[in-house]
Design a protein around this nucleic acid. Structure first.
Lengths: 203, 203
DNA sequence: CTGATGACCAAACTATGATATTGGTCACAC
DNA sequence: GTGTGACCAATATCATAGTTTGGTCATCAG
C-alpha cells in the first residue's frame, strides 16, 4: 500500500468530507454550498455523506466546532497565564477580535450579518460559540478567586455572563468598525473599570 | 370662535400632522404607515405634509425625538440624584428596560428586530437614541467626578462609551428574554463590577 | 396673491405562476 | 456489506403583471 503524495489519498471518508465541507463553507458560506459541492471535492457519492453526518447542519456544526477549538486553544493559554485577571480579560478580548477578524466563517455565524449563513443553524452555531467563550471567562474568574486576585464576593456564573456581554460588545464594535472611540482607548477604559471599578479606591 | 370639544380642532397643521404621524407609526410601524394614513388623520391634503416636514423620514424622526424626550426627562431625574454613581447607573438601566419594554416604537427603531421599521431611517433613529443615552451616562460620570465619588483617572468619554455598551447589552438581553441568568442577578453583578471592580479592595 | 389640495407618475413593492434547485432517501450495482 | 447517484418532495428562485406609495406641482379656493 503506497500512501505517498497522491492528492486523493485514502484517508477516512469522514475526514475527507469534513475537510471538503470546511473548504466549501469557507468559500461559499453555508447557504450557497451544496451537498454536491462537498461530496465532489471529497470524492465520495452524495449518499455517503449521510453515513458519517446526520445532515447538512450537522456537518456545518462539525466544521464550526473544529474551527472554534483552534481559537479556544490559544485563548486557554491566556487564561492559564499569570497576569492580573483584568489584563488577561483584556488579552482575551484582543485575541477574540484578532481571531474573528480573520475567520469569516466563525464571524458570520456568531454575528449573523452576512448572507453566508442564517436561520436555525446560525443560531445553533452562535449559541455554541457563546457558551464556549463564556466558559473560558468563568474559568478565568474561578482561577482568579483561587489565586485571591479576584474578589471572593463575586458570583462566578453571573460575572461570566456579564463580562461576556461586555467583551462581546467591544468585539462586535471593533469588527464593525463603528466605534465612537479608538479601540485602544476602549480596551484601556474597559480594563480599568472592570479591574478597579468606578468608585474611589484606598489601596 | 368656538374652540370647544370639536375633535377637528383648529390647532397648527404641523402639530396635527405630528400627532397623527405618531398615532399611525405606533399602530402600523414606519414601513406600513402611508402618507395618506397620516394626512387623512390630520385632516390635511397630502401635499400639505411637505410644507412642514421634508419627507416621511423627517416626520418619523420628529416622532422618535419627541418620544425619546419623555424617556430622557425621567432619566435626567435619576442622573441628578444623590445615590452612588453605580447605583444611579443601575437605576438608569432599569428605567431603560422599563421604558423600552413599553415603547414599541422606540424599541423597534433601536433594536431593529421587528418588521416595523428598517433601512436607513432605522439607523438614523437608533444613532440618535444611542447618542442621547450615551450623553446621559457621560453626564453622570462627570457629576460623579465632580463629587469625587468616581475615580478622577477615568476618561469620561471613553467610560461613557464603554458603559453604554455594557448597559445596552443588559437592556437588550432583558428585552429579548434570552438571558443566561436572572435579570436581578445580572444587575446586581453589573453594579458590583462597575462599582468595585474585580480586584480586591483594601478600603 | 397665497396656501391647500389631490391627480399624477416614476419607482418600488407585491403577488403569482413557472421553473430550477437541493437535501435527503433508497434501490441497485459491485 | 458498502458506496453510489437517480429520484422526488420541498424549497428557492425568477420573470412578469399588477398594485401601491412618496413626492411633485398644476390647479383651485379663499
Amino acid at each position: 500500500m503506497n500512501e505517498g503524495s497522491d492528492s486523493r489519498q485514502p484517508s477516512a471518508p469522514d475526514r475527507r468530507l469534513a475537510a471538503a465541507a470546511e473548504s466549501q463553507f469557507r468559500r461559499f458560506g453555508y447557504k450557497r454550498t451544496t451537498i454536491d459541492d462537498i461530496t465532489a471535492e471529497a470524492g465520495t457519492g452524495k449518499g455517503s455523506l449521510y453515513l458519517h453526518f446526520e445532515s447538512k447542519q450537522a456537518i456545518y456544526m462539525a466544521v464550526v466546532e473544529a474551527s472554534l477549538e483552534r481559537f479556544v486553544e490559544a485563548a486557554s493559554r491566556l487564561v492559564d497565564g499569570s497576569e492580573p485577571v483584568p489584563t488577561r480579560l483584556r488579552s482575551l478580548v484582543e485575541l477574540t477580535i484578532e481571531h474573528y477578524g480573520h475567520d469569516e466563517l466563525l464571524c458570520a455565524s456568531l454575528f449573523g450579518r452576512s448572507g453566508l449563513v442564517d436561520g436555525e443553524v446560525a443560531r445553533m452555531a452562535a449559541d455554541f460559540q457563546r457558551t464556549r467563550i463564556r466558559d473560558l471567562i468563568r474559568e478565568l474568574i474561578v482561577i482568579g478567586q483561587r489565586e485571591r486576585s479576584v474578589r471572593a464576593h463575586v458570583n462566578a456564573d453571573a460575572a461570566a455572563a456579564v463580562l461576556f456581554e461586555i467583551g462581546w460588545a467591544v468585539v462586535r464594535t471593533a469588527l464593525e468598525g463603528d466605534s465612537q472611540i479608538p479601540l485602544e482607548q476602549a480596551l484601556t477604559t474597559l480594563n480599568e473599570i472592570v479591574g478597579l471599578g468606578l468608585l474611589p479606591r484606598h489601596d
